[in-house]
Design a protein around this nucleic acid. Structure first.
Length: 438
RNA sequence: GUGGAUAUAGUUCAGUCGGUAGAGCGCCAGUUUGUGGCACUGGAUGUCGUGGGUUCAAGUCCCACUAUUCACCCCA
């Protein structure tokens, strides 16, 4: 006999693979997210995992380009999508004439980033995106609807308290205008974004490294330290009396967003204004969001997004403003599991396992069909194994009911229904089984 | 890309001063041939990541490689 060279069955670093009990839970979360998106009327959208590099890298550069998975097939330069926003931009530009605006779509899928894998950070991960794209204009009220969707999802996911942090980039831009340091804005925002992680002192040190004057550092500090209730923060921002037009506009937008967030019934304890969130991504131009799980801030934002003024500028002349968010489900799932917040009690999908004792396979198929017609998931154990093994199968997979069919049952045209949790069993008819299980 | 750590059974890990390998869980069998979980009894399982070096002797010490992992950068 030829010897088979065995290969170690390993999975690449940075790629999540789950056992069935975890996958069941993961899919439940996925379903909650998708169904909630649809509850808000968002349309489903799919785009290819592979795109032409030219299309995908149209607006990229820097980090994105370094992290993207690219390869050649023949003479074609191809890349794996690294987010769902760029494919959305391409899609909207390509089908502009066939879409109805404002275009509200959701897309859930895997994206790829070739960076060093790390705790909760994967090279392949799920993003669950929603975006609302306007044709030329898009009401600010859309920016208030987004937190309401996040709110509904995290309420349904039921992993404990969470808080949606809301800010507006224009307020920050206005501040930098006011301080005459708009040229360093991008670097400063990256530093401010790290506040929660490294603390105020370290932020001040980093700002000093960027050659921000002492006076301006103090102003930035007192600005991001603005505290109080949501309404108090708005009032304090107003009281700054900044001349900057962009600041005034940002504040007006934020005020409007807060008003409608309340109208959308997001509870006061589940949202706040956080003047420090800026997001590294440079395409956000207005409202920005981050969501944290209260008590588990260290895992970072589990859902972020914001408003961008021009989605598809690299693909079309059309002016397409949008607002959207993305839930990083792979990271969220990983962190929740690490924290023990995921209870993976379901090891199987079947509610019933049908076991035969030498005879009765025909009866088994028949009752299996009937159960399925009544929407009861079930399976037949078909292997010629010992009785013990048959029951162990149901037990290991924690299938709650077993139907046993043997000589006695076939003769009487009855079934033994066993409850695997209590251990009780009884001889019953088809009708009684349905009555018990439906 | 930069810096640290780790690699032993299916899995989680122990292995002292260098002296040819262990535990829990899981798996298999039995107590129980129409009954799983619990309990008890028994059993199987290893190129000690790969290659080289030191040594009478290496899982253990040294070197290289590979893989994994944590942090930084950046981000979900």
């Amino acid at each position: 006999m030829e010897e088979i060279k065995r290969v170690e069955p390993r999975t690449l670093s940075g790629f999540m693979e789950l056992l069935p009990q975890d996958q069941i839970k993961f899919n439940e979360m996925l379903n909650i997210i998708k169904s909630t998106y649809e509850l808000y009327g968002f349309l489903p959208q799919e785009t290819p995992i592979i795109e032409s590099s030219e299309v995908l890298l149209a607006k990229a550069g820097g980090e994105t380009e370094k992290q993207i998975y690219s390869f050649k097939k023949g003479d074609k330069d191809l890349s794996l999508r690294f987010d769902l926003t760029v494919p959305l931009a391409k899609y909207v530009a390509a089908y502009y004439n066939e879409l109805t605006f404002p275009y509200r779509r959701y897309q859930v899928g895997k994206v790829f980033r070739g960076e060093r894998a790390q705790k909760g950070r994967y090279r392949e991960f799920y993003q669950c995106d929603i975006d609302i794209i306007g044709d030329g204009k898009l009401s600010i009220i859309n920016d208030a609807e987004i937190p309401s969707i996040i709110y509904t999802i995290f309420k349904k996911l039921n992993f404990g308290p969470f808080i949606i942090k809301i800010n507006n980039r224009k307020i920050l831009n206005g501040l930098f205008d006011e301080l005459n340091i708009a040229d360093k804005m991008k670097d400063i925002l990256i530093v401010i974004d790290k506040l929660e992680k490294i603390g105020m002192e370290a932020v001040k040190e980093e700002l000093a490294k960027l050659e921000v004057s002492k006076e301006n550092i103090e102003k930035i500090e007192s600005f991001i330290k603005i505290d109080g209730t949501t309404d108090e923060k708005l009032a304090k921002l107003q009281a700054l009396n900044f001349e900057s037009e962009i600041f005034k506009q940002g504040l007006a937008e934020l005020t409007e967003v807060i008003k409608y967030v309340r109208l959308f019934k997001v509870e006061e304890e589940n949202f706040m204004i956080d003047l420090t969130i800026a997001r590294g991504l440079d395409y956000y131009t207005g409202t920005v969001y981050e969501t944290n799980l209260v008590g588990y801030e260290s895992i970072g934002s589990v859902c972020s997004g914001g408003r961008y003024e021009n989605l598809a500028g690299y693909y079309t002349k059309k002016d397409l403003p949008g607002v959207g968010i993305s839930i990083g489900l792979t990271r969220l799932f990983y962190n929740l599991k690490e924290l023990g917040l995921i209870n993976t009690e379901n090891k199987s999908i079947s509610k019933v396992d049908i076991i035969t004792m030498g005879v009765g396979l025909e009866n088994a198929v028949e009752i299996s069909n009937i159960l399925r017609e009544n929407n009861i998931s079930n399976e037949i154990y078909k292997e010629d194994s010992k009785v013990k093994a048959k029951f162990s199968y149901a037990n290991n997979l924690e299938i709650p009911y077993v139907i046993i069919i043997g000589e006695e049952e076939v003769e009487k045209n009855m079934y033994t229904l066993k409850n695997m949790i209590t251990g009780d069993q009884k001889l019953v008819s088809k009708d009684e089984i349905l009555k018990e299980l439906v």
